Simulated assay, not measured.
Amino acid sequence: MSLQDCAAALRDHDPDRFGICLMAPAKARPGLMTLYALNLELARAPLASNEPLIAEMRLQWWIERLEDIGAGKPQSHELLTPLAEAWGPRAAAFAALAGARRRDAAREPLEGPEAVAAYVRDTTVALALFAAEALNGTIADPAATAEGRIIAAQAEGVGLAHWLAALPALQGLGLGLWDPSPQVLAQIAARARKKLAEAKAQRRQLPRILAPVLFPGAGLRAVLDAAPKGIEALASAVPSEFRRRFTLGAFSLTHRWWI
């Protein structure tokens, strides 16, 4: 998988992040494209088999290969080779993204709002922090820097909203909630709104170069409004393709990421 192949995979299966890559400076694109392509593969890996053990083995393979990159071992793989070229030993840290998907391999629903938030922090938030690193060359630490805190808050809010939007499909895969009642969904939506407001209040502290990794996507408000009405309402809150493209185009002009 060359950079062109990474771009094609993102364009077909993760168009919003493909758009983010196009907005980034040219020197940051290899890092972003390979990171997002890896995330796409890690999200797919545990769903490729209904057997938890086989799904777990797929994830473990990725973890070991990423650790190999960290140890300086040469790679001969369509994705891992350009990933190693773009990130070097730092790519070993991405094993955490694979580890966070182990729950998906087990096909076990989440217990409630706190478990959903923890899952989003381990996947979406961690991914956003790595993406920010690709853009500005420094590690955005949410525990030590203002930039890291803003990115973490925005990514959690956006990630929770996107998780809610995907919930009708996730329930069918056994990856949703044990209790998908409107009350529980309302709590998740309320947490998302809180995190989005937290990020918005600090927006002036974030450099413009990092704006792309905070892109919220289209229809976020509609999803959060629908959540307290139940899963059926969430299923009808998905934005149209035209709305999605329009929102991404508008963002490319304004870089206004806050909600």
Rank of each mutant, 00 (worst) to 15 (best):
A146Q: 09
G159D: 11
A153M: 05
G72H: 12
E51C: 09
A197K: 03
W61A: 13
V213W: 09
L3H: 05
P113T: 01
N136Q: 10
P182A: 09
V125E: 15
L32Y: 15
A9V: 13
E67F: 11
V238H: 10
D68L: 12
P228W: 02
Q60T: 05
L32D: 07
A132K: 11
P142T: 00
H13P: 01
A115Y: 07
R221T: 01
A165F: 02
W258A: 06
A227D: 03
A155M: 05
P109C: 12
A250K: 08
V116Y: 02
L3N: 06
C6V: 03
R193K: 05
G176A: 10
I151G: 04
A84F: 12
A143C: 06
L79H: 08
L83Y: 07
A161D: 02
A134T: 10
W163V: 02
K73I: 12
L177D: 11
A192L: 10
M1A: 14
G172N: 04
T247W: 05
K200H: 12
A227G: 03
S240E: 04
L173C: 04
E108P: 02
M33E: 08
D141R: 02
A144F: 15
A126V: 00
E56F: 04
G217S: 12
R103L: 08
L224I: 01
P52M: 12
A132P: 11
A7G: 06
F242Y: 07
A106P: 11
A218F: 08
R203P: 00
G172R: 07
D68T: 07
T81F: 12
P25E: 11
E41K: 10
A84L: 04
A71M: 10
T254S: 15
R58D: 05
L214V: 03
A71K: 12
F94Y: 09
A105T: 06
W87V: 00
F94P: 01
G219Q: 00
V184F: 02
G217W: 14
G172D: 01
A45E: 06
G176D: 04
L248C: 05
H255M: 15
